[in-house]
Write a protein that binds this DNA or RNA. Structure first.
Lengths: 238, 238
DNA sequence: ATAGTAATTGTCATTTTTACATTTATTTTT
DNA sequence: AAAAATAAATGTAAAAATGACAATTACTAT
């Protein structure tokens, strides 16, 4: 089976940075690590790549194990390969980031892993280089969401413009003018206005919208500039 | 040494997509593969990751081996991990893309590998999934160069605006208005005008410019929009 | 019926973009 | 030595977009 002579083989893992939005705050899902080393320390959900799978498949498997979810937004982020990143044995890790609708997530499944959602300003110390992975995922999310319709993946099928705006405001830690924001979103043509309203947050109520799936897929890669004064809100990118 | 029980270890390689600009056309550097399988077929330059190195270090090593160059622009692109991508033995490959000043490149070194520069519309059949890697690198280059001052890495220290424009025009396969182009570039504040001109292409001569290195590093991550009608020139992104 | 609230729509000055036109600096030709 | 040729550099203005702020609207609760 080993046909390239004299080459070292390495452990390959995947780790997932899983984002969710509870209607108020952007959060990531962390687990308490179940095996040594660093047992019971906070960690990203991950696992070793099996002989039968690609890293994409491994990441999807791991994500399903923890959340019960299939077919969610999952994107390869970066491969971490520092020689000593795992103290037990050399392992390279391909990091993925996922965006899920937090309400779809099945709690009972994740209890097995002692998983918890954390706000981004309250993330505990993480094992290995996982803090670096989280930082990079957050940067990438900010960068990409400013230019592409990404954050919709975090919302339920029906949502209001004020809810969308509060998500953007939390991601960019700033406030946007509501008039300009709604015009910009509407002008993308990505949303279909519904007949009904959400009246939990105001007396007037805010219309629900749904994604126009076709338009969304077709225009996902277009550069849209959702964010005014973009450069004030991005520090760096990957 | 093997401390995580019952896990499979895999070969890990790096492959480099090396871009250069000869003053006329954007090109990539390919080699004739020296070992079986697929000996003498066209291939990206690559190599196995050694126990002593990270993938970044491996990519830099491989790049230096082929070009003789140190400290060039090198960025991790994507990790390719399809189960059967290498027919001999399972190998995952971390692809990197490099931007070099083609005139710095030392030809005698690469003759050992039978390396040749190819225009992007004349790339031969490549081994394994290397064509896919090239396609992704090209997309990424287009995407990123539209928003960040990336293409300067392909030019010599002193260059003219018309040369820069011809590079942009080749990358995006289109023509730009020269007045608007030069204004946009100048307005970034990234360039320092020199006293001398290049008179090889016109009677009037075009002033040389140099990168303002400090400004360049500081503003590299700013979103600048170098390209008008951006969405007409990007198909997709990674 | 009225007041209160947040959603929605409106307005307009400012800035950016883009198409196209003119001027300028230099070399080559007459 | 003047004129023609060439491509670089600069100028112009209409159109589009952005962004700050104001007014109106639709509904609920008093």
């Amino acid at each position: 089976m080993l046909k390239y002579q004299n080459q070292t083989r390495l452990l390959v893992a995947v780790d997932c940075i899983i984002f969710g939005f509870d209607g108020n705050k952007l959060k990531i899902l962390l687990i308490k690590r179940g095996l040594e080393p660093k047992k019971d320390h906070w960690s990203l959900m991950g696992g070793f790549v099996q002989p039968s799978e690609s890293t994409d498949e491994a990441a999807n498997r791991v994500l399903k194990q923890l959340t019960g979810l299939d077919g969610v937004y999952l994107e390869q982020l970066y491969t971490f390969s520092a020689k000593d990143r795992d103290p037990i044995e050399r392992t390279i890790s391909v990091a993925y980031f996922a965006l899920i609708d937090i309400h779809q997530y099945e709690k009972q499944i994740s209890e097995e892993y002692h998983a918890e959602w954390f706000q981004l300003d309250q993330i505990p110390e993480l094992i290995f280089d996982h803090s670096q992975m989280v930082a990079m995922a957050r940067e990438k999310l900010r960068y990409k969401a400013a230019l592409h319709p990404l954050l919709f993946e975090l919302l339920p099928a029906k949502f209001t413009l004020p809810l969308l705006q509060s998500l953007f405001e939390d991601v960019y830690e700033t406030n946007f003018d509501k008039g300009n924001f709604s015009r910009k979103i509407i002008s993308t043509g990505l949303l279909i206005k519904q007949k009904d309203k959400d009246k939990t947050n105001s007396k007037k109520g805010a219309f629900y919208y749904k994604l126009d799936k076709k338009h969304y897929k077709k225009n996902f890669h277009s550069v849209l500039k959702f964010i005014p004064n973009l450069n004030n809100h991005l520090e760096a990118e990957t």
